[in-house]
């Protein structure tokens, strides 16, 4: 094992779950853990996109640490396209 692989493995072990999930969701549908195949730089850049346009400093200062951690763990992990019909609870048996 190279030192880089070792570092990534260690990082994988200590990363919070939302970061793992952020990587999972970029994996074009094969929902496997891909931390080992992405560089740490890309890995963290991907997860940082979740905060674009959010008043994240306000929340960091206004929430307790456990609240803020739970909030960060919740938001923006998924990267799928929702269609309006996905929220219909009464769906047709078969499309046209």
């Amino acid at each position: 094992m190279t030192s880089t692989q070792f570092a990534v493995n260690v990082a994988y072990q200590i990363m919070p779950s939302w970061q793992i999930g952020a990587v999972q969701s970029t994996d074009k549908g094969r929902f496997t853990r891909k931390a080992f195949t992405l560089s740490p730089r890309i890995y963290f850049l991907e997860s940082e996109k979740r905060f674009d346009g959010l008043d994240i400093n306000f929340y960091r200062q206004s929430m307790t640490v456990p609240e803020f951690r739970a909030y960060l763990n919740f938001i923006g992990e998924e990267t799928v396209d929702f269609h309006p019909s996905d929220f219909e609870v009464y769906y047709p048996d078969e499309e046209g």
Partner: peptide, 27 residues
């Protein structure tokens, strides 16, 4: 349900608003 789905999914058109609502509610 749409609030939770949109806040989980950063590609949704309402992502920013949904996450802001949940953040404000927690605060």
């Amino acid at each position: 349900a749409n609030l939770l789905c949109y806040a989980r999914n950063r590609l949704s058109p309402y992502y920013k608003t949904a996450t802001t609502i949940i953040g404000d509610l927690i605060v």
